[in-house]
Computed example of a mutant assay.
Amino acid sequence: MELKGKTALVTGGASGLGEATVRRFHRQGVNVAILDMNDKRGDALAKELGDRARYFNGNVTNEERVAEIIEDTAKTFGGLHICNNYAGIGSAHKTYDKKRDAPHPLDTFKRVLDVNLIGTFNVARLAAQQMSRQEPVTDDGQRGVIINTASVAGYEGQIGQVAYSASKGGIIGMTIVIARDLAQIGVRCNTIVPGLIHTPLFDTLPDHIFEALENSVLYPNRLGKPDEIAMLAQQIVENDYINGECIRMDGGIRMTPR
């Protein structure tokens, strides 16, 4: 699918991987709808990018709000062709913490799955509905592309990541099913599986910990760049034969227990 002139919805689009993708898509002539809950960053980014960008405050778990945003996006830009799901949260709790004699808080587990897994599916299913109502944009009858985001933790989560790993493993597991479900309407679904990507969170770490993380990557020995994830998102959109895939973007890292 050619990028120029298409419209993309990017959740978590006001910062990190989402912002990098918004910026890359916009440079390629894509209209971008930024769905986030950070008004300051979202408004500033949309203002910077101009008429081909809009910011929407919304929670990905809210059915009515997401539906409103997708409808507004389609009306504003004439359709919706790309859905990039980056919005997510994390937690750090063991299944059972011996020191505190405490099991994993169940409400925290539910919250992580609600945002990461159910939120991703909520946006994907509503985006697919909108895409189904549009005319095909390729000779193969393609109407759109959904790109979800998992994590290497979905394959080899570390100690304390049980909720996060479960949510990302769920995204990995539903990728091929969504692709199969949506084949009949000409919509592809793929998942990006990032490793250690250099977002602002890592800048708060002590130097020795940061260096240890870099050295844990097989090659190259550094953290990934947000734009490298955005580049993969672009390539998934442009290559019509990539479908039902979970693509690791991690420098060959395989996570250790700690």
Rank of each mutant, 00 (worst) to 15 (best):
N31K: 05
C246W: 04
E211Y: 11
V137I: 15
G90M: 10
L106T: 14
R188S: 01
G157I: 09
V152L: 10
D203M: 08
V217Y: 04
R222V: 03
S15Q: 15
A14N: 04
S167E: 10
D114P: 12
V145G: 05
A153T: 07
V237L: 08
S91A: 08
I82A: 01
V145P: 02
A8K: 00
Y164S: 04
F210P: 05
G13Q: 04
A92V: 13
G18Y: 07
T73R: 01
Q130A: 04
A44K: 06
D240M: 12
Y164D: 01
L196C: 09
N62M: 06
E63G: 03
R24Y: 09
Q142Y: 14
R258L: 15
L49A: 10
M249K: 01
H26G: 12
V162H: 07
A20Q: 00
D203T: 02
T191I: 08
I253K: 05
H93L: 09
S91P: 09
A102Q: 15
N62I: 08
G78W: 14
D39M: 10
K94A: 14
N239G: 03
G16F: 11
L196E: 11
T95A: 14
I34C: 11
M37G: 14
S15G: 12
F77A: 00
Q129R: 11
L113W: 15
P226E: 10
V237H: 01
F210H: 08
V177S: 15
G29R: 06
I34E: 03
I146T: 05
H198K: 13
P226T: 11
I172A: 03
Q142P: 10
E68Q: 09
I34Q: 07
N215A: 13
N122A: 02
D181K: 06
D51I: 13
M131H: 00
T149S: 07
D240H: 12
T204S: 12
D139Q: 11
P103V: 14
N85L: 02
A233K: 00
L182W: 07
G154E: 05
F202H: 11
D97R: 12
P226S: 10
F202L: 11
Y155K: 10
I89M: 00
L113C: 10
Q142T: 12
N59F: 05
D140K: 14
I247Q: 06
I253P: 05
T204I: 13
